[in-house]
């Protein structure tokens, strides 16, 4: 039963990533692209979590935690650069 739920989850997250990619390519503004990249990181974290359940090992969650941190720092750096023209003042 968990296998079917995992299959559904993988398909849903793959579709979600395709939708995010469409928004990333179409824009229309740079803020939409930052938002699309941020959402893509979230969905990839979801895929890593599901892969951790499917593989039965708890070692993939460090990757999820690292990706969450890197994604947040990237979004904040891009937003600060657009807001202030500089990242670290």
């Amino acid at each position: 039963m968990i296998e079917y739920a995992l299959g559904f989850g993988f398909v849903a997250l793959g579709l979600a990533l395709a939708l995010n990619l469409w928004r990333l390519l179409k824009g229309p503004g740079v803020t939409d692209r930052i938002l699309a990249l941020d959402t893509m990181v979230i969905n990839i974290i979801g895929i890593i979590v599901l892969a951790g359940i499917a593989g039965g090992s708890g070692s993939s969650f460090e990757a999820a935690l690292l990706l969450a941190m890197v994604g947040f720092v990237g979004t904040v750096a891009y937003a600060k650069f657009l807001l202030r023209g500089d990242i670290i003042e």
Binding site: F10, N20, I42, N43
Partner: peptide, 10 residues
């Protein structure tokens, strides 16, 4: 969880 992720991206 998967449904919410898909709905959010939609």
């Amino acid at each position: 969880g998967g449904s919410f992720a898909l709905i959010g991206s939609w």
